[in-house]
Design a protein around this nucleic acid. Sequence first.
DNA 1: GATCGTCTCCCCCGTGCGGGGGAGACGGGT
DNA 2: ACCCGTCTCCCCCGCACGGGGGAGACGATC
Lengths: 220, 220
Amino acid sequence: MPVTVLLVDDEPLVRTGLRAVLEAQPDIEVVGEAADGAAVIPLVRRLRPDVVAMDVRMPLLDGIDATRALLRSVDAPPKILVVTTFENDEYVYGALRAGADGFLLKRARPAEIVHAVRLVAEGESLLFPASVRRLAAEYGNGGGNRAARAVLERARLTEREREVLRLMARGLTNAEIAARLVVGTETVKSHVSAVLAKLGARDRTQAVIAAYESGFVAPG
Amino acid sequence: MPVTVLLVDDEPLVRTGLRAVLEAQPDIEVVGEAADGAAVIPLVRRLRPDVVAMDVRMPLLDGIDATRALLRSVDAPPKILVVTTFENDEYVYGALRAGADGFLLKRARPAEIVHAVRLVAEGESLLFPASVRRLAAEYGNGGGNRAARAVLERARLTEREREVLRLMARGLTNAEIAARLVVGTETVKSHVSAVLAKLGARDRTQAVIAAYESGFVAPG
DNA sequence: GATCGTCTCCCCCGTGCGGGGGAGACGGGT
DNA sequence: ACCCGTCTCCCCCGCACGGGGGAGACGATC
């Protein structure tokens, strides 16, 4: 079964572009479009999309309020991918706090857009380093912290995973973590993989960066 | 079971001082002393200490060579805590390269010395952040950043190495750093190795931790 | 009773990483 | 001239890492 997507953006051009990119994939199907957040809820009820690609800035009801409303009033709500041109990141953080599952830059390359849709569809609430790094690059380490915090809040790590992340952030290897927790190294690898997946980190280094940037661990 | 410690220092005064400080702890036991690195290996074989507190500058066999010899010729070797007056840090870095697990300032306060011994005994090889914190503690609260910066200065990273460390601390791989700096990956590997050696870090994760802990990079 | 999440451990497998060497080019300093 | 530090690139090599699978045990929830 293909991943079904609902596009919500006030600019027809963007909707068309996203549709073109996504429909080029055999496993992704765009099942509907909306020009404003106000139209989202009934559409979601009718179409039951897996993913809603939602612009943050829209005239009547913006992406933040639409996200909040959607999660409150629809059961088994779709995954919400916040789409932004990135001029105003306040909206993005607001949307993530409201419960969005990831965010996406409009200027991202098609392959990245497709990747993001598949990821959130699979239940990953990530897009951390790629986008946050881009954030940091453009804002000169200005907005990374808040974005990271919002993402980490949504990562929903289990207690064991947080424990493992803490030890990773102290520079321990998998074997050392295993010794410390009195479990097998394979077990630690499982937890580490889960942490990486949930944080959207590519390797333990990025996970540690995420831990620092989010305030999960603090210097000193 | 208490932590057993072997003291290696050519100055009896220092040995006595360390012994006094450490024996005051119920969970730490000094099991032996040596005045030179040459006497270390047979002593370690006989006493099997958990930790060797080793001076770096000693007449016959210095701490660097003693560390190297110890790790090479003893199986299940003890943790090695390098003790230094800190006037000559070249020795310290040499010892860390040789495989020491941490270093300690002679002028550190008793509580810090005890703390350092317990840490390495637990298998913590986070030399850099630990010492930064220790330094920060010595300079009183508030001067932590200055102290941390001082330690990083001691690492004497070149401009290029600092550049590489910054990119490491943003989660980039060697290949990505190479692309960013428009050099070959082998070149980046050289710089990374230099950074790891100078910081006493075992891998890039520990280097990034050191970067955060020292204030070289800051969250947010 | 069945389902779900969590924690635990196992397999294979590719590769990025880091150590340990070396070497040439350039510039500055003595 | 000479040395030295820096930056650049190269080799080989072992291993930790991380992806992609699967699977059993346990407790909570339904």
